[in-house]
Amino acid sequence: MTVTVLFAAGEALWPEYAPHLRAAFDEAGLDAALVTEAEPGAVDYIVYAPGSPLQDFTPYTRCRAVLNLWAGVERIVGNPTLTQPLCRMVDPGLTEGMVEYVTGHVLRHHLGMDRYIKGAPGWQQIVPPLARERVVAMLGLGELGLACARALKALSFAVEGWSRSGKTGLDIPAHHGEAGLEALLRRAEIVVTLLPRTAETENLLDARRLAWLPQGAVIVNPGRGALIDDDALLAALDSGALGHATLDVFRIEPLPEDHPFRHHPGVTVTPHIAADTRASSAARVVAENIRRGETGEPLLHRVDLTRGY
């Protein structure tokens, strides 16, 4: 029986994704019709992206899963009409891109490369410590956080992680709770934030917690803009308590030209490029979840709607 897959991720993405999705369906042996319009009652799966015109899921009574093309689900998870299973995107290409971004910027700050890139005067032979002597805090131990933590560990950094729920059985030291966060931040010279945005994580790094960091610590945030209190971050940079912040995500995107981050000497702004979903590999994840839905197997990367991720 042919399953109907509604592509509701926006017109702009259709030319990019359509051929890859159809190829992935064929590769998975799926008899699937990929469409951009259909009667709601005839739709079996929805391929989705936040910002889609589709906001009312109530008529989609036959839909067995909503398959998000983004890793972040905060813009859909609170939709009260969404009763269907929701799966976020964990794309191998996205993960690789995030690992490259995080590793590159952690190494940049660890080695103090900015002073040379910007043309430090004189002959300043400032030798950095070895990676094993540098504590890196990974805030967030999901798929992306763990992948980045392991890459940094492979370079001998002293990586320790923190998560809200607490993780056990990992190959890096893991902390949780307020006490665990404080203990880790008080020792961390580089902090990477890869947590989801929830009510509990918004403004996680506020003035009080930023003050726990050692003098001159660096923050790399490719996770969510709302994880850090903007005003508190700027104050910590202005006072010299923080050494630098490399930010890839923001509360408003694109970041307004007159935003203080744009012109602050202690801030590096990158335009949300740390990791992106690759259509070729993401299509295989979508196809695999449809195959699982049709065979009764558990869906991959299913979101807990009560927790928000």
Rank of each mutant, 00 (worst) to 15 (best):
Q55G: 15
G78P: 01
R134P: 07
G293Y: 10
W14D: 09
V136P: 11
E288D: 15
V285K: 02
A149R: 04
L237W: 13
L181I: 11
E143C: 08
G41H: 12
G180S: 14
L242T: 00
T81L: 09
N203A: 15
R291K: 15
P196I: 04
L204F: 11
G216S: 03
R164K: 05
V73Q: 02
M138P: 00
G29C: 09
Q125Y: 13
W70I: 12
A24C: 09
V249E: 02
H175Y: 15
A38Q: 12
V106G: 01
D56V: 01
N79K: 04
D206V: 11
C63V: 14
D276V: 12
V269C: 12
Y116H: 12
Y101D: 08
T2R: 08
H301S: 04
P129K: 13
E257F: 08
T268V: 09
A211P: 06
H176M: 12
G104H: 10
Y45V: 05
C63P: 07
A211L: 13
L30W: 01
G240T: 12
L82Y: 11
P40W: 14
I228D: 00
P40I: 14
D230N: 01
A199D: 10
R132K: 10
A8F: 04
P15T: 10
P53D: 05
V303H: 03
A28S: 02
Y45E: 13
L233W: 10
A283I: 11
K118N: 14
V159R: 11
A8R: 08
A65M: 07
